[in-house]
């Protein structure tokens, strides 16, 4: 499970639902209305949406847009439509959908605080041999 830091986690809860269809599955607010903890669910996956809760937990917005980890979303339906939904929600499309040598069609986008998200849909069944032949890579662990 990933925990993603935001300066404004409450806004993130709203735009992550609008862009990706994530649903809030847990939201804890203290008696001042601050978001203490929150989780969003997408299928069987859960992501935590938090604030910058220590000096070492920062949103990309606070560190020049840099990302040190990114979250990958695997879907089994129309990735192009998914991308348009993210665009409509105000996400920047960094790389539009394109089909990769390993058979997934992927796009990459940036949310309003600068987190990069990758979204992938398997569209072609590719064997390890075919992937090795097309790329010249030695691939281990491809079942």
């Amino acid at each position: 499970m990933s925990a993603v830091c935001y300066r404004d986690p409450r806004a993130a809860l709203t735009y992550l639902e609008a862009a990706f269809g994530f649903e809030i599955s847990m939201l804890i607010e203290d008696d001042n209305g601050n978001v203490v903890h929150s989780e969003m669910r997408f299928g069987n996956a859960v992501v935590m949406i938090g604030h910058e809760w220590s000096e070492d937990h920062k949103s990309p917005l606070s560190i020049g847009g840099k990302n040190t980890q990114t979250v990958h979303i695997q879907i089994d339906t129309d990735v192009d439509a998914h991308c348009e939904r993210a665009r409509a929600a105000g996400f920047e499309i960094i790389v539009p959908p394109e089909t990769q040598f390993y058979g997934d069609r992927t796009y990459r986008c940036r949310d309003p605080e600068g987190h990069i998200w990758t979204v992938a849909q398997p569209v072609i069944a590719v064997t390890r041999e075919a992937a090795e032949a097309s790329t010249g890579l030695k691939i281990t662990g491809w079942v």
Binding site: I24, M26, L27, E29, D31, N32
Partner: peptide
């Protein structure tokens, strides 16, 4: 204001 604990799941 008051504290809120919100949880949701699909059934």
């Amino acid at each position: 204001m008051t504290s809120k604990v919100y949880v949701a799941l699909r059934v």
